[in-house]
């Protein structure tokens, strides 16, 4: 019962979050995505969900952080948001659509092309970013002393031999807010791969190579179960 309520609250929170950015049809689409892939607990899930909606439905990524905060606030409020469960709208859409298709078969083409295109084109960059967030969050969960890791990373980026000085800014931002990944949203896959390698080196120095490998393998296993891993294999970061 409780699970049902949390899921409902999550749908309501999502609706309220994106209401000012999206049309009703897009909002329904956002709820469908939530129901399909993101109805699980955890801060990382909220970050990943909001990032996906931003990228797929064209919301400015600069709003990602504030949307995440708003989502969290709505989830933690004692009273429920004053809106109906958006799931009813999703169900209503599903009932109406087959009827529409029967009446106007040619409209199928018109309806599907625009929704298919944005899904295909930007999905890869979004996927590798989401995978990075998911992977690094899991790595942090398996790291006993995160502070020590961040100190080591800060030390490694200053090592001239490693030629990683350009990553110092991102490491600094991450160290300040370990659960926020807004700094990584516009980074290329190559930069994210370099960051993953730097994290590996940091773990080797802090925990030793055996524990570092173990930590990476566990994070990889978790990451591979995420829906975005179907679009971008986390092993490509390794």
């Amino acid at each position: 019962m409780l699970t049902m309520d949390v899921k409902k609250r999550r749908r309501q929170a999502a609706w309220a979050c994106f209401e000012s950015y999206l049309s009703e049809e897009e909002l329904i689409q956002a709820i469908e995505i939530l129901e399909r892939d993101f109805q699980v607990d955890g801060a990382i899930n909220v970050i990943a969900y909001v990032a996906k909606i931003c990228m797929e439905l064209g919301i400015d990524l600069q709003d990602h952080k504030s949307l995440c905060s708003k989502f969290d606030e709505l989830m933690s409020e004692k009273t429920a948001p004053m809106i109906n469960d958006p799931l009813s709208l999703v169900h209503r859409k599903k009932r109406v659509e087959p009827a529409k298709k029967l009446l106007q078969p040619e409209s199928i083409v018109v309806d599907e092309i625009p929704s298919a295109e944005p899904k295909e084109t930007p999905i890869t960059p979004a996927a590798y970013n989401l995978v990075f967030i998911s992977f690094t969050t899991s790595v942090l969960e398996y790291t006993p002393d995160q502070k020590e890791l961040f100190i080591m990373l800060a030390d490694l980026v200053t090592d001239k031999k490693l030629k990683s000085q350009d990553l110092a800014e991102f490491i600094g931002q991450w160290a300040n807010t370990p659960n926020s990944f807004t700094w990584s949203e516009e980074l290329s896959q190559q930069t994210l791969t370099r960051l993953v390698h730097l994290i590996y080196m940091g773990l080797c120095e802090v925990l030793g190579p055996v524990a570092a490998d173990d930590c990476f393998h566990k994070a990889l296993a978790i990451c591979e179960r995420k829906p975005e891993a179907r679009l971008f294999s986390p092993s490509q970061f390794l």
Partner: peptide
Amino acid sequence: PRLGRYSR
């Protein structure tokens, strides 16, 4: 040494 074989 190999990476991480000896701590600092």
